[in-house]
Design a protein around this nucleic acid. Structure first.
Lengths: 249, 249
DNA sequence: GCTAATCATTGAGTTAAGTCAATTACTCAG
DNA sequence: CTGAGTAATTGACTTAACTCAATGATTAGC
């Protein structure tokens, strides 16, 4: 608990206190309108939902919510990037996911019982999120059951992704976990190579993959020296994914 | 691929060929009626769904479906036990979940796109499952959107569970992963002790926790010699969960 | 109830990955 | 632009976990 305090006191600003700026401008809205959870809503319903939401600005490393806090809102990322993590009893910080602009998170709370956040959420850099009341979205779905289809489809996708994440973590050695992770980041599948940007700082990718930063660094250095990846800060270029897969056995 | 063949040829019987026995008896139905996905269905809708389903008997180690197979059905376990696993390119078998009677699995396929199984499913012992056409359930939801609520709630729970599973796997050392796993199996929370039955053979629990069977065995022997657990075949008695949590740091 | 097969345990030796420590490279605020 | 603070890398060393191998224990099928 003492360590947990330490980890939290690094965030100077209060948690979940909205900058009460109305969401009246258009930037960021386009992505919201095309998100699976919202694109089928009738314009007036979407407007109403937005009216009940608040835009929130988060500074670098600012905490949005804490694990086990009652969950009254879920979130849509307008800009920036966030990460989801948990702290265990000894204060170890374990990254579970990173969220990019255009994505929703904690949306599972709309139907969770009890509605408590399952992890911490913090901004990785200065970010903006839309803070949507769970109650408002639920009421919308209760009034218009036909909207549920989109939500179900979204939830199904989410479950498949999590299942896939779990699979990577059952890979026993660190090198192969990292390779699998990189392959999954590739936009165009495994056929052709491509450039990949790490969605997290390297030390947090390491945490996400259950290894030490030093191990991450050494494995990447090794892949680099074998010509399997080219590294430029957080951008990696993978020329031959097939070869990468072959060596991961 | 050759190794994958080897792994598969151990299953003598064909995959997904229903024993065409109508589901006309009552045993197993009670659990189905009380499952979150079905308990709110009107009796005639549930009956219709059952009419379109088939009861399937699976022998020990019998394969139900393969990873990447088109998914036309999802399943409810009437009796026995199954496991979900994946095979990677080198033929390594990685267990991701075990399913008990009263549970559904592959239900996420109702809304998946494309509808392909994300893993293999096999019976751990002789089992019976109800094989429910995805199409039938979807049509039911399309006709009666009010049913979607239950599905959403179920999917939300599923997502939270997977998230939690993922968290365990980011624990870096094998001992602490095993301890976390055992704690989560405890029925009455961490306050009081209790007996826990491993839902999988030990070698598959090891696979689920990304460690070797030998490592699993050694860790358990160590916990046993420190009086933290008493082991009786697949049943473990944990007298003091708090102490177990304390040493896992 | 017996036998074969699988599962579980234990030991010995090896390797992968963690730890600690020092250095270098970034990043961001002023 | 500059310096403080954080992140990344690298080296040396240690330890946890894997591998291989042999032996018991259980289980499934006859």
């Amino acid at each position: 608990m003492a360590l947990m305090q330490t980890a939290e006191t690094r965030y100077s600003k209060p948690v979940l206190v909205a900058v009460n700026k109305p969401f009246d401008d258009e930037d960021g809205l386009q992505a919201l309108r095309s998100h699976a959870l919202f694109r089928n809503l009738r314009p007036r319903d979407l407007e109403s939902l937005i009216q009940q939401s608040r835009r929130l600005r988060l500074g670098h490393h600012q905490l949005l919510y804490r694990q086990d806090m009652p969950a009254h809102h879920f979130f849509f990322v307008i800009s920036g990037r966030l990460r989801l993590y948990r702290l265990d009893s000894s204060g170890i910080d374990r990254t579970l996911d990173s969220i990019a602009p255009g994505d929703c998170f904690a949306e599972v709370m709309i139907y969770a019982d009890p509605p408590r956040y399952a992890c911490y959420a913090e901004a990785l850099k200065s970010s903006e999120v839309l803070m949507i009341p769970v109650k408002a979205y639920r009421e919308l779905l209760d009034q218009h059951p036909e909207y549920a289809q989109a939500a179900l489809s979204h939830y199904a996708k989410r479950a498949v992704t999590r299942f896939h994440d779990l699979e990577i973590m059952t890979v026993q050695n660190a090198r192969d976990r990292l390779i699998r992770y990189l392959i999954d980041l590739l936009p165009n599948g495994t056929e052709q190579g491509g450039e990949v940007e790490l969605p997290l700082p390297k030390c947090l990718v390491a945490s996400r993959l259950a290894m030490q930063p030093e191990t991450f660094s050494r494995i990447l250095a090794d892949l680099k020296s074998n010509g399997l990846v080219r590294v430029n800060r957080s951008k990696l270029f993978i020329s031959d994914p097939q070869r990468l897969i072959e060596i991961s056995q």
